[in-house]
Structure formats: structure tokens, C-alpha cells
């Protein structure tokens, strides 16, 4: 099914490859500030794509995905600073494995009870989970959440750190998008779509709903954790407040909604628009930043509930070959 999915989405894949080449060359031409903006775009877009695997495909809207950013970041940071394996690259890999592993375990443990809740109950339960983790992390001294952790520098000495993390985010973004695409075009993705449309009917058709939801949840958590770990290294120093951030959880939904919920191109498009808007245009309007975000959220839901792609994609008439963005 993967091969067939690649065939039917070949135009989107070509578009993605062109974008990838452009993004890979971009740091050569961009000023440092713009590299930072582009880095934030990659991080945001990848987060939104990872969220989409559960929220967009299966319709389980997590309001607390920052739980996995924070958990991944802190587990990796604690492991890397405690063991300090040489060389630095290996240390980072061990931290990455530990952090994403922790996210996988947490998601798998939560899956059974929490994925039985539907709609707003799931959303709120995830919000609760992220808040509990954030507060525990902040208040239990062993986790160093309030004191903060300085992460080991992993950029090689002769490489500009800004560019180094840019490429790290780019690789992580490609991985995330690839994984999400593989989910989308295979049985798992179709099963998740059936679950989103009508879970009881999906089960009646033979979709192993519990297993599929758990798989989507764990994959989404692991990818989110991976991104959180890279983000933590890019920051260099983290506290609970800098990685357990409710606005991360909210923003991924805004990106997905703005671009087009349930698609893969949508969250990327949404992230691009929002990051450019908030960093380049509204960067000077710190006072009203939250107001504008809120107003945009309201405007999207009221005016374009299907997102930008919901309007643009039919115009492109790419759907003739059966592929959706």
C-alpha cells in the first residue's frame, strides 16, 4: 500500500522534495535572524505534523501534547548530564533514545485508560496530564525543573550552532513527515480515518480500534518527544516553564486548523503562515501578541473551518488522481 500511496501522491512528493532542497540551501543565503525564524518554522511545522497523526487522522484532539515535549526534553537532559558519555554525539544519541523511550512508555501506559475517552473528555484529560507532569517536574527537586538544566553542547566546534540546529530540525522534520505520510497511506491511516469518522462503525468493519489508536498515540508522542529534545538542545538551558508550555499544545492545533485539519500539507502551511506572522510582522507587537493569536483562532474556526487547503486544494484539481494533501 505504501508504494501505491507514493504513486498516487507523487505530485505532493515532488513538491515536498523541491521544498526540501530549498530549505537545505536556505542557510547559505539567510541572515542569522532569518535562520532562527526558519528554525522555529521547522520545529513548529514538525510538531503540528506529529500532532496530526493522532489529532488530525484519528480525531483525538490532544490539548496536552506539550507533555511529550517536556518529558522528552527533561529525560534526555537528565540522562545526558548524569552520564556524560564521550563523545558528545553518542551522549546525545543516548539522551535521545532515553527521552523518546520515556515518551513511548508514557503514551503506551496512558493509551488504555485515556483513549477510551472521546471528544472533549480526551482533550481535557490530556491537558490534565500535561499539567500534572509540568507541575511535578517543577516541584520535585530531583527533576531540576525549577532550577533548570544546562544541556551539553552537541554542535561540533567548527560548525555554527545556529546552522547546526537548523539542519537537525530539518532532519527531524523530514523524519516526522515521512512517518506521518507512511501512516496516512497504509492500512493504519485508513483505519484511523474510519475511527475519526465513526468509531463504532469502524470497529464493526473489523478495524482494531484500540490497537490503531494506541499505535498512533505512541508514534505521535515519540516524534513530539524527539522534537522537544532537539528544541531543548537548541535552547541550551531548560526549565519546566520553557518546555512544558500550554501554548505549544495550543499552537499545533492552530497550525493544523489554519492549514487544513487531517491533512499533512495543512499543518505545515499553517505553521509557515503563523511563524512568519508572529515573528516577522507581529514581533514588535509583544503586548498584543496573545490577542492576535486568539483573534486568529476565532476567525479561522468561524470563517474557514476547513482551513486554507479546504479552499485551495479543490482549485488545484490535484484530487483527480485520488490523492489528498
Amino acid at each position: 500500500m505504501l508504494a501505491q500511496g507514493i504513486r498516487s501522491h507523487r505530485r505532493w512528493i515532488v513538491l515536498a522534495l523541491i521544498a526540501l532542497v530549498a530549505l537545505a540551501l536556505a542557510p547559505v543565503f539567510l541572515a542569522p535572524f532569518h535562520i532562527r525564524v526558519a528554525q522555529l518554522f521547522l520545529f513548529s511545522a514538525a510538531l503540528a505534523v506529529a500532532w496530526t497523526i493522532l489529532g488530525g487522522f484519528a480525531g483525538y484532539w490532544s490539548f496536552g501534547h506539550t507533555a511529550f515535549i517536556g518529558l522528552g526534553a527533561f529525560v534526555a537532559a537528565l540522562v545526558e548530564t548524569s552520564f556524560q558519555i564521550k563523545p558528545a554525539g553518542l551522549n546525545f544519541v543516548v539522551g535521545m533514545l532515553a527521552g523518546t523511550g520515556a515518551c513511548a512508555v508514557l503514551a503506551a501506559l496512558l493509551a488504555y485508560p485515556i483513549l477510551r475517552l472521546r471528544g472533549i473528555y480526551f482533550a481535557i484529560a490530556m491537558l490534565g496530564v500535561s499539567q500534572v507532569l509540568g507541575e511535578l517536574n517543577n516541584n520535585v527537586d530531583a527533576f531540576k525543573g525549577s532550577l533548570g538544566i544546562v544541556l551539553p553542547q552537541i554542535a561540533p566546534a567548527h560548525v555554527e550552532p545556529q546552522a547546526f540546529y537548523y539542519y537537525l530540525f530539518l532532519i527531524a522534520g523530514v523524519l516526522t513527515l515521512g512517518a506521518a505520510f507512511a501512516v496516512k497511506v497504509t492500512r493504519l491511516g485508513h483505519g484511523l480515518l474510519a475511527i475519526r469518522e465513526d468509531e463504532d462503525t469502524a470497529r464493526m468493519l473489523g478495524v482494531p480500534t484500540e490497537r490503531y489508536k494506541t499505535a498512533a498515540f505512541v508514534l505521535s508522542a515519540v516524534l513530539t518527544g524527539m522534537l522537544g529534545i532537539i528544541y531543548a538542545h537548541a535552547l541550551g538551558y531548560i526549565t519546566s516553564g520553557s518546555v512544558y508550555r500550554t501554548d505549544f499544545s495550543l499552537n499545533v492545533m492552530v497550525y493544523a486548523l489554519l492549514g487544513g485539519i487531517g491533512t499533512l500539507a495543512g499543518p505545515i502551511l499553517g505553521a509557515g503562515i503563523m511563524v512568519v506572522l508572529t515573528q516577522m510582522v507581529l514581533g514588535r507587537l509583544l503586548d498584543t501578541h496573545m490577542f492576535v493569536t486568539g483573534a486568529l483562532l476565532v476567525a479561522i474556526v468561524m470563517l474557514a473551518p476547513r482551513g486554507i487547503l479546504g479552499y485551495v486544494a479543490p482549485l488545484l484539481r490535484w484530487r483527480k488522481d485520488g490523492a489528498s494533501p
Binding site: 484532539w61 471528544g119 472533549i120 482533550a123 495550543l250 492545533m253 486548523l257 496573545m290 490577542f291 493569536t293 486568539g294 483573534a295 486568529l296 483562532l297 476565532v298 474556526v301 468561524m302 473551518p305
Partner: peptide
Amino acid sequence: LVASMLVTFGVALM
């Protein structure tokens, strides 16, 4: 209804 919840969230931010 989930979308209406997002609207109330947006209003809260504003």
C-alpha cells in the same frame, strides 16, 4: 463542538 471549544479558547486569550 470541539471547534466551538477552540473559539472560547481564542476569546479567553483575547
